[in-house]
C-alpha cells in the first residue's frame, strides 16, 4: 500500500532534485552577466506589458533603454514621472517631455453631419468602413461605433450621446492604441496643453465638405491668414496646426467660418500686469500682436482685457516677470 505512494514520490522527487541540482550548477557555469540597471529600469516601468512603446513588453523596453537604443522617456504610459525615475537610474537628464493626449479630430455628430445610408451591420467601425467607406456622408469622419472604446485599456475614450468618440483627457495616457485601431485615422496624439485643434480630417474640396457636414474644414484658409504666429499651414484641402508654434491664442477658432477649428474658449487666459514689478519698458506692448497692452514709456502698462487673446507672448518677453497669465 505504502509502496504505491512512496515509490513515485521518491523516484520523481529524486529525479527532480537531481535535475534541479544539475541546472543550478549549469546556471553558475553558463551565467550571463546582465546589466544590473536593467532590473532597476524594469522596476521603474509600469509593468503593464501593454506594448505601447513598440517593444515586446516592459522587459524588452528595459533592455532597450539600458543598451541605449530607446530613449529614457520611451514609455508613453508612464509619462513624466517614470521617465525621470529611469533617467535617474541611467544617470542622464530628461527633458520634461510634453504630455500627449489622444484627440478625436471630428465634430461631425448626428446633428452636424449627414449619413448616406443607415448601417445595420456588425457594431464595429472597421466592419462599417469596409462597406462603402462607412455610413457617414463624409468618408473621413468618425463612425462612432466604438472600435476605439473597445481597445482603450484605460477607459479613456467613449462615444458621446451624439455618436462621436470623445477622449477623457484626464484618463488618456497616450498609449496610441485607439490611434492605431481607428479605421478612419480620425484620432491623433496632440500635446495636452494645446486647447486648439483642427477638428476635421476631410481632404475633400470645400463644396463636398459643406454638402456632408456643417462643421468641416472647407479649405478657405482664413485661419492661415489669421494666425499671428504662422502656426497654421494648409495642405490637402485641410488646415493643420504646428503645435510648436501655436500659442493657444484661439484667433483661428474665432475666425473659422464653419467652426471646424475647435477651441475651448473657457480655457482662454488673459494677461495681468503686476504694477509693482512693471518698469514701463514697453517690450510687452511691442511684442503683442493684438495691441492689447497700452501704456507709454516709463509708465505702468495696462492690459486691455477685451483684446487679449492669452497667447502669453508678453509674459515670456517681460524682463521682470511682471506679467502672469490667468
Amino acid at each position: 500500500m505504502w509502496e504505491q505512494l512512496l515509490f513515485p514520490v521518491l523516484s520523481l522527487g529524486g529525479l527532480g532534485f537531481l535535475f534541479g541540482a544539475g541546472l543550478s550548477l549549469a546556471s553558475k557555469k553558463f551565467a550571463v552577466e546582465k546589466d544590473p540597471r536593467e532590473d532597476e529600469v524594469r522596476e521603474a516601468l509600469p509593468g503593464a506589458n501593454c506594448g505601447a512603446c513598440g517593444y515586446p513588453g516592459c522587459d524588452g523596453l528595459a533592455s532597450a533603454i539600458v543598451s541605449g537604443s530607446a530613449p529614457v522617456d520611451a514609455c508613453p504610459v508612464g509619462g513624466g514621472p517614470v521617465a525621470s525615475n529611469i533617467a535617474a537610474i541611467m544617470g542622464v537628464e530628461v527633458k520634461a517631455g510634453e504630455r500627449m493626449v489622444a484627440r478625436v479630430l471630428c465634430q461631425g455628430d448626428c446633428d452636424q453631419a449627414i449619413d448616406k445610408f443607415r448601417y445595420h451591420g456588425i457594431n464595429d467601425c472597421v466592419a462599417a468602413s469596409l462597406l462603402a467607406d462607412g455610413q457617414k456622408g463624409c468618408s473621413y469622419g468618425c463612425l462612432g461605433l466604438g472600435t476605439c472604446v473597445r481597445v482603450c485599456p484605460f477607459d479613456a475614450i467613449h462615444i458621446n450621446e451624439k455618436g462621436i468618440a470623445e477622449v477623457d483627457r484626464e484618463k488618456c495616457t497616450a498609449c496610441n492604441k485607439c490611434v492605431v485601431a481607428c479605421p478612419k485615422n480620425v484620432i491623433e496624439l496632440i500635446p495636452a496643453s494645446s486647447e486648439v485643434q483642427v477638428a476635421c480630417r476631410s481632404q475633400d474640396k470645400g463644396k463636398v465638405v459643406k454638402a456632408n457636414c456643417k462643421v468641416g474644414c472647407i479649405g478657405c484658409q482664413i485661419c492661415v491668414k489669421a494666425c499671428p504666429f504662422g502656426a497654421m499651414t494648409f495642405e490637402n484641402n485641410l488646415a493643420k496646426i504646428d503645435y510648436e508654434k501655436c500659442t493657444n491664442c484661439m484667433v483661428c477658432a474665432e475666425k473659422c467660418p464653419t467652426k471646424a477649428i475647435y477651441a475651448d474658449f473657457s480655457k482662454r487666459k488673459t494677461a495681468f500686469i503686476d504694477e509693482e514689478k512693471c518698469i514701463g519698458c514697453t517690450l510687452c506692448s511691442k511684442k503683442c500682436n493684438f495691441e492689447a497692452i497700452e501704456g507709454a514709456r516709463k509708465e505702468k502698462h495696462r492690459v486691455i482685457a477685451e483684446k487679449c487673446t492669452g497667447c502669453s507672448q508678453c509674459a515670456e518677453k517681460c524682463p521682470t516677470n511682471a506679467i502672469t497669465m490667468r
Binding site: S11, L12, F19, G20, G22, F30
Partner: peptide, 27 residues
C-alpha cells in the same frame, strides 16, 4: 518500480530540465 503510469510526468520533467539547460547554453 512498476510506476509506468507516471511516464508523462517523468518525461515532462526530463524535457523541461533539458530545455532549461539548452536555454542557458544558447544564451
Amino acid at each position: 518500480l512498476k510506476i509506468e503510469y507516471m511516464q508523462t510526468l517523468a518525461f515532462i520533467l526530463i524535457i523541461a530540465a533539458l530545455v532549461q539547460f539548452v536555454e542557458m547554453v544558447i544564451q
